[in-house]
Amino acid sequence: MSLSPQDLKQLFRRLLLIRRFEEEAFRLAVAGKFSNYHGGMGQEAIPVGVCYGLKPTDNTMITHRGLGVLLTRGVPVGEIFAGLYAKESCPTRGRHPIFHMAAPELGILAGTTMVGSVIPLATGAALAARIQGKPDVTISFFGDGSVNRGDFHEGVNLGAVRKLPIVYFCENNFYAKSMPLEASTAGGSIIARAQGYGLPSELVDGNDVVAVYEATQRAVARARAGEGPTFIECLTYRWTPHSTAGDREFSRTAEELASWKAKCPILRLRKQLIEAGHASAEELDAVDIDIQREVAEGVEFAEAAPYAAPEVALENVYV
């Protein structure tokens, strides 16, 4: 469970891949190549820290934000870009935005656009693992905006009362669209709600990839041992607007954004690696160049990819 220097370098690579991907996706969306991109820049430590230690048989269900989980779990960069362009060469073949793609072999279950509706779904996947006698754990990702929906309360309660093998994972970036957390969420604490359902819970620095990794590993171990769900709340911040469709960040101040940028998860790990003597700046820069090439190739692949043929629209309504 403890991370070797090699592991840390792997984490760094994954973080940087997401960052470079996010930058490019944001740029392309703003340039009008595709519409409405929900950037996850600034939140990279969460997908990387959560997914790094998972088995491919462990399931993840994600939200509309941050394609980092897909990248970390092994969906090729080019396929994800193709998804943003709604081209055929992606797992949804252009039928639905890429973030809710399914890749069961990678443990990626589908998702849903309805904020919070993922929580009962993920709970069901965990229930089935129990019934099927499998050791698989499910990670249910959701944003702070989800916790005021009935689906959150009903889903978490069901998981808790049945002691299911699931991790309820809240990415608290303090805003749901234009709505600040304190204006929407009574009691002021998300994690207190989990405690209300009797769940062990952890409040984690979501910009510290190692802390996210370790908390997830503890939660996954508990779930696998049959001890039931854990609730993790990670504090983080999105650096970009809710989406590229329209700026609504009225209540976010420039100082707030700057203070979170100073907590960049990638610079933090980079500094750690160099200071501990695990890597040189040159080595890490070389990783960056490599990643930038991977991202550029991904974009090229997507640009060149065809749209699905019209008949595809009529297929798979039923299996």
Binding site: A86, G94, H96, Y307, A308, P310, V312, A313, L314, V317
Partner: peptide
């Protein structure tokens, strides 16, 4: 419309 959900890509949506 045909009895399908509404797909995302514009060429597929055009079928709907």
């Amino acid at each position: 419309a045909p009895d399908i959900p509404v797909p995302n890509s514009l060429p597929l949506e055009a079928v709907y």
